[in-house]
Nucleic acid binder design. Structure first.
Lengths: 343, 343
DNA sequence: ATTAGCACTCTCTCTCGATGAGTGCTAATA
DNA sequence: TATTAGCACTCATCGAGAGAGAGTGCTAAT
């Protein structure tokens, strides 16, 4: 069931128009506004066919057509032009980053803000992932003798911490010693490397019982991923309220409630991603509360390693071309900034 | 212009009823439901007086009365009974804390969630404030030679960090030396104490230029308060959507947009507070976007020092008695938890 | 294959009247 | 003098009904 080029053209026009105006598109609009050289009646016939094929639907008999989820999918896969940002938009983004160039947290947070300023949807940006980051300093601090705080500083300037519990008290001097040891061995390693390394040294050099237990605890933390306090920053939550699709309070509530649960979003962003940018439309999303939304996610890397993600959540009637352009540009931007931080 | 006890009674009934039902209260309701032993007509006369005095108003001629802001204020100051939580509510709260007893961030975040589960408003909880916290470990780490990350670990297990910029490169060994010095002098001090102390030692023992400059930089950070990355956790943002007063999308948008700006909320919570709990109603709030909301804030302390705040934001038609009870109970709860952490 | 023309459908908006909740006032009552 | 019953009046709300308008589907002509 392939589309003729004219059908493709019409589908594209309908989708673009609907994305802009949020209102069913009529045959007349198409025939008049975009000069295809055919009459409204012809357009109507084509539209009827497109509906039969499942790309369009009608809210009611005497209304124009709106794209179906299948229609959007086809558009995104086959028809969508590759858009690039205007100079003005680029400038806006670049200026935005000039204010937040020091701390990673600020950069990530600012990214979310910037995104939701240039596109009217909600954005989410995940904090650089620690597993592949290199550690440049670690320290163990006793909180109350039995609970020890492990603090790890990465070369990006981010900090990971974890409380380790011990059945026996540990003196502070002992912890200091182990901290020194920790830094001696682990400096410059990523968690992954530390994990591998730990196994090899556990029995050899660190013979003392307490130290060994601490190390084992750290390893356990690595295994359980409990270090990865993957913080996610949101931007433009209020944008949802401007979207006509979500005029219904219940819908908005469902979405905002979803956005409140950080771990749900973490799952969302955590999906497998073969391309740099992927789009999921409507019920393609697994999470129920956002099944009438579309989600665009992009990855950002450092030294070839995936370290974070950017997500944009909006209605299925989303400006896909623009969102893709923004997300693409911004992820490259973050990559550059992070590279700069590391020189 | 004092109220008779009967007028007070009627005002109280009206406010309580309106808080529950969110609908103008009629004279008949009052005369029938709450047996005051007087007729609706008498109630009407009293209501008319109360309106004249500014405690009540009418949405339109043939509707019941609703409390004015002045009415709420009178209620809160003079009439409101002191409520305590039900056993069930206490249990809910206590259970909630059992899951999050290790890291402060989790405790604070969980607090916000708990609050907005037992009251249908938005809650905000500020992270323990660092200025009065004691530091148990500090470390300087070179990021790129010119930028140095100062990391401070408090006895509560929270971490403060700040990037210091230097016009000259500093070797890592030097930073390690200074770190040792830092801990030697500052261990167990609060930022306030460090500031005072710094001034006294700056010329004496730390004579070396680089160390002196670093110290000056730290001091500058203290002065500018730039350490105080006062994180605020939100709970129950979606609750706003259930409030009939905010049926208007524009109103909701205004409020949610406000909640998105962390620094605005920081200002909100930062207000002077002589009592443990204070209430501001409607236009008593300085921030424009929440002038049709009420805000209840409570402080929590540790060793007599104010270290954080809890806020609840809702409509002026707020269950003040319950909110006050919750906020009061929870702040005491946090205080106990923090005390426990420090033994 | 395309298109003009027309009947038909359905939503949206506006108006109108009925309904009912609630008040304010007046006059009677304790 | 305070209270109350009674009644007229007000105003929001709801539903029905009419009219307008946008858009389609179908048919017949090109």
């Amino acid at each position: 069931m392939k589309l003729t080029s004219r059908q493709g053209k019409i589908l594209e026009i309908i989708i673009k128009d609907f994305i802009n105006k949020a209102e069913p598109v009529s045959s007349r609009t198409i025939a008049k506004s975009y000069n295809l050289g055919i009459s409204a009646a012809t357009v109507r016939n084509e539209m009827s066919d497109l509906e039969e094929m499942g790309y369009l639907e009608q809210p009611h008999t005497s209304a124009g057509r709106t794209p179906t989820q299948k229609g959007y999918r086809f558009y995104v896969d086959q028809l969508m032009p590759i858009k690039s940002l205007t100079q003005k938009e680029r400038n806006y983004i670049n200026t935005g980053y000039q204010q937040a160039l020091d701390e990673i947290d600020n950069i990530v947070q600012q990214t979310a803000k910037i995104i939701s300023h240039i596109i009217p949807y909600t954005s989410m940006v995940s904090h650089p992932h620690m597993k592949t980051n290199k550690y440049i300093h670690g320290h163990l601090v006793s909180l109350d003798g039995f609970r020890v705080l492990l603090v790890l500083i990465t070369e990006l300037g981010t900090i990971e911490k974890k409380i380790l519990e011990f059945p026996f008290g540990i003196k502070e001097e002992k912890l200091d010693e182990i901290s020194v040891l920790l830094n001696k061995y682990f400096k410059g390693m990523s968690l992954e490397e530390i994990e591998r390394y730990l196994i090899s040294i556990l029995d050899q050099e660190i013979v003392e019982q307490q130290a060994a237990i601490i190390m084992q605890n750290i390893m356990k933390g690595i295994e359980e991923n409990s270090f990865c306090t993957e913080k996610i920053y949101l931007g433009g939550t209020s944008n949802i309220l401007d979207i006509p699709e979500f005029k219904d309070r219940e819908k908005v509530k469902k979405i905002i409630r979803f956005l409140e649960e950080e771990h749900l979003m973490a799952c969302l962003l955590d999906r497998e991603q073969t391309n740099k940018v992927i789009i999921s439309i409507g019920s393609e999303n697994e999470s129920l509360p956002i099944q009438d939304c579309s989600l665009v996610t992009a990855t950002y890397h450092l030294n070839g390693q995936l370290i974070g993600k950017i997500g944009v959540l909006g209605p299925t009637r989303m400006e896909y071309d623009k969102v893709v352009a923004v997300v693409d540009y911004i992820s490259t931007n973050i990559e550059n900034i992070l590279k700069n931080i590391l020189n």
